[in-house]
Structure formats: C-alpha cells, structure tokens
Amino acid sequence: MHPAFSVIFFTVLSGAGFGLFALIYLADLFKLGGGLPGAYVFWTGVLAIVMVGVGLLSSTFHLANPKNAWRAFTRWRTSWLSREGVLSVAFYPFALAYLALYWLELWPAARHFAGAIATLLAWLTIFSTAMIYASLKTIRHWNTPLVPAAYLSLGHFSGGMILLVVAMMAGVQALPFVLLSLFQLFVAAFVKAIYYYWIGRLGAGSTINTATGFTRAQVKLLDAGHTHGTFLTQEFGYIVPKLTAVSLRLISMLLAFAVPLVLLYFALEYHSLALGIAALVSVFAGLVAERWLFFAEARHVVNLYHGAQRC
C-alpha cells in the first residue's frame, strides 16, 4: 500500500491524544502519584483534545473532495470510517465538559460522569480507527484482531508517556506513572512483536490462481493492460524493499520501546526531566516508523492482477 503521510500523522497523533485523555481521567480518578495538581490536569487535557483535533483535521487532507466530508457522518450503521467520525465528534462535548468542570471546580460527580463517558468514547474511537483497516478482507496483513490491539496499546503507551513527562514536571511522585508506562510499553511491544511474527507467516490465501480461476496450472501475468501506471498501481503497487522493511522494523522497535525503556530507568534514577522528554521523543519517532511500515507492508489482493503470485 502507498503510505500516505497525512494518514500516518493522523493515526499516530489522534491515537496518542485519545490515549492521553483516557489516562488523564483515570489518573484523576485514582489520584495517581498523590494526584496531579489541577492546572496540570487541565492543560494536559487541553493538549489531548488539541492533538485529537489536529489529527482529525489532517485526516481530511487526503480526501480528494473534502466538501462532501460532512456526509461521512451518515453511514455509521455499516462503515467503520463513518463510526470513527461520529464517535470522535461525540467525544468532544463530554471531554470539554469534563475539563470545564475541572477548571471551575464544580460538581465533582458530573465531572466524573463526563470524564467517564469521554474516556469510553476515546476507546471506541481508537477501536474504530483500527477497524477501518482490520475489517478489510482484501488486505490480509490488516485483517487480524492484532490491529485493533496494536492501535489501542500504542495509543495508550504514547499518551501515557506524555502523562509521565507531565507528572515529572508537576513534581508529583513519579514512580506510579513510570510503572504505568512500563506496563504499557511491554504490552505494546509484545503486540507489535506478535504482529510482525504473524504477518511473516500468513499461510494460504488468495493467489494468482484463485484470482483468475485457473487453479490447476501455473499462471503468469504477460501484460497488465495499461501503458503507464493507473490509480490502482499508485494506490496499491508500492512494495517496500525487504532490507528497508527489516531495518525499519528494527529501528521502530528500538526507538519506540528499547530506547525509552533505558531512558526511563535513568530518568527515574536521576530525577531528570530531560531524559523523560528524550524518551517521549524517541517513542513518537518510533511510532511514525511503525505506522509507515503498517501501511507500506500491507499487500492488497489486486496486485494479483498486476503480476503478484500470492498476497
């Protein structure tokens, strides 16, 4: 698949934004680290909402006809893309209400109610985003429950790293936040490791034989029937060179998980905010590489009509 930058940017940023919001609410609810000071909760919440908003806006950049984008809210009964839109917009009033009540220090019960609903919607939105990909029968690299698992765990891990840096800035007890991040780091790393293992061994699927119906002979494409590229070759024809894929996998796993793990250890040891921020930057660099690969490594079955033997 052709990796579109706007979609990479959108999924990484809004995933982290939703994850961050959910964790802020939970940290507030459980008074993690003795409870973050109010102003920190508020401004981190604002950051989460801005990240989600910027991500969603950037996702409209890959539309060829954005003037009809409002219609995407209409087919939520069948389409995960539509559900993502509806849920993410529904998230806003609850998230804003939560933050407003926090700012005004009013009605704690109502605040918690709004926060809980917004958190639930954040989870459902990340799930919908992942299901956009996971529901496609045409792309086996995506058609697996590991995709929503990865989106949810990576969104929470990257959002949690932001929260950790905020906790260090606020000067509250950092250990609970570090433990939370460590836990999420391991879950996300395991899910991604399983995913890479899985897509390396997909087993039987569609082949050039089932695509043409000639299942009792060897089939070979002689001519794809177009002079230059088509929409199909531009959108689906991209193939990552094997070496690039392997090295990027390594780089993304290192940057997203291994480097932050080491940095977190020293950040806690030396109470160093700078090391915490370095860990955060490393995570996001790793996630951009991870998301680029997620798209670039996916193989659409239409390639069987352009010469691929199996997909």
Binding site: A64, N65, N68, A69, R71, L81, K137, T230, E235
Partner: peptide, 27 residues
C-alpha cells in the same frame, strides 16, 4: 458523484480493482 468525498476507502475494499479515483473531479 454528488455525495462521494474521495476517501478511496471503497477502492481498498474491492478485490477486483474495479474502482478508480478521478483526480480531476475528486470522486
């Protein structure tokens, strides 16, 4: 053509390569 927003999602869902985006009209 009056409702399409050109998101390409349907072309991802089609196994037979039957859908092509018109970059001029965006549909």
């Amino acid at each position: 053509q009056d409702k399409c927003m050109g998101c390409n999602y349907c072309s991802w869902a089609c196994p037979y390569g039957a859908r092509e985006l018109d970059r001029e009209s965006g549909t």
